[in-house]
């Protein structure tokens, strides 16, 4: 094609674009052409955020919301790497990552005057805004384990070799170490006690990376118990009648939390705040609880008794949870990862 032809095509494209944009209804011009970038986990979380936060925001402001899906480690790497020139506005991370990100100046400190700050249970916005509350409990095969187990039951000789653990590093592994340390009369600040106790569970039946595989193994009787984070697990249990989930009492379930972070100096701070308000709002938090069994952090959420029974949604329930010293845990991650590789997996 000649140069002349090319430029003619370009001109036609330009004209067409102008025609199309001119024909659009003139809603909320203020954020038109702007894009909010939100980093989160894929699957149900993305679906609910899209439906309850992104779509209403797009309708209200004329902006576009772009999701970047992946693990929280990817997002941490991205916001640290881009600290001079961030391209992500909102990042969902784990409870143990948020205080670190705030300390390193990567995210905006939660604003105590923001309405969505006040809606969240007191003392929950550590580092970023608390998005949901879930606890590490025990999924178990009802045929092998007669009643909802306590943590100590995992160490009973009849279950030797039938306990599964998640891959490490991760909240599940840190939680199990915290529990093991307490069963040994110490806490997570004594890693020798934690690893010594946890090592008694080896050889572990399997390292699970997704629910399908662990539930299949549990249904087959190859795994008796596995520490797991409530939420997805409880949702998935509806199709596995032989698997139960126990919130232990001694110590209580380990609190794990998703956090919503506003990235510091991000390109669209106003849109990010609007998104946060919708994500932390009653509608989205109710859907999180009803569909994903993620406990709401918003105290205005009212749940039906059936849903409430399965999620952590009252201050009393939160009081019973075991809280780890996450900043300490994350500072130990590197050493613990190697110890886990060697002592728990026997690599």
């Amino acid at each position: 094609m000649s140069d002349n032809g090319l430029s003619r095509v370009a001109a036609a494209c330009l004209a067409a674009t102008m025609l199309v944009t001119a024909g659009l209804p003139a809603v909320a011009q203020d954020f038109k052409g702007k894009t909010l970038v939100v980093g989160t986990w894929g699957g149900d979380i993305e679906r609910l955020l899209r439906q309850n936060a992104a779509e209403p925001l797009e309708k209200e402001t004329g902006a576009k919301v772009e999701f970047v899906l992946g693990g929280s480690g990817d997002r941490m790497a991205r916001i640290y790497a881009e600290k001079a020139n961030p391209t992500m506005d909102v990042a969902f991370v784990n409870i143990y990552e948020a205080p670190q990100a705030l300390k390193d100046g990567m995210v905006e400190a939660p604003d105590p005057n923001a309405p969505y700050f006040k809606d969240v249970w007191d003392g929950m916005n550590n580092g970023c805004y608390a998005m949901s509350l879930v606890g590490l409990g025990i999924a178990y095969n009802k045929k092998l384990v007669s009643k909802p187990p306590e943590w100590a039951d995992m160490w009973k000789p009849e279950f030797k070799g039938k306990i599964a653990l998640s891959s490490y590093p991760g909240s599940e592994g840190d939680g199990v170490l915290g529990v093991a340390a307490r069963l040994a009369g110490k806490d997570e600040h004594d890693p020798d006690a934690a690893f010594g106790k946890l090592k008694e569970l080896t050889p572990i039946a399997m390292t699970y990376t997704n629910l399908d595989e662990i539930f299949a193994m549990m249904d087959a009787g190859e795994v008796a118990m596995a520490p797991m984070i409530s939420g997805y697990v409880l949702a998935a249990l509806k199709t596995h009648p032989d698997i139960g989930f126990s919130f232990p009492k001694e110590p209580g379930p380990v609190l794990v939390r998703d956090m919503l972070c506003l990235v510091k100096n991000s390109p669209e701070p106003e849109l990010a705040k609007k998104f946060a308000a919708l994500a932390l709002g009653v509608k989205n938090q109710t859907d999180y609880a009803e569909q994903l069994y993620f406990g709401p952090t918003n105290k205005n959420v009212k749940l039906s008794p059936e849903v409430s029974a399965d999620v952590i949604d009252t201050p009393d329930e939160v009081q019973g949870l075991l809280q780890l010293d996450w900043p300490y845990v994350i500072s130990q991650r590197s050493d613990w990862t190697q110890r886990w590789n060697k002592e728990i997996l026997g690599q």
Binding site: G71, G73, A77, Y168, G170, T207, S334, T337, L345, Q347
Partner: peptide, 21 residues
């Protein structure tokens, strides 16, 4: 399944999970 560490998996563990870039 997390049982066998190779160079690739250890590098991923350190970069993506330990965050020791």
């Amino acid at each position: 399944q997390g049982h066998i560490a190779t160079f690739g998996t250890v590098a991923y563990q350190q970069a993506g999970q330990v965050l020791d870039w």
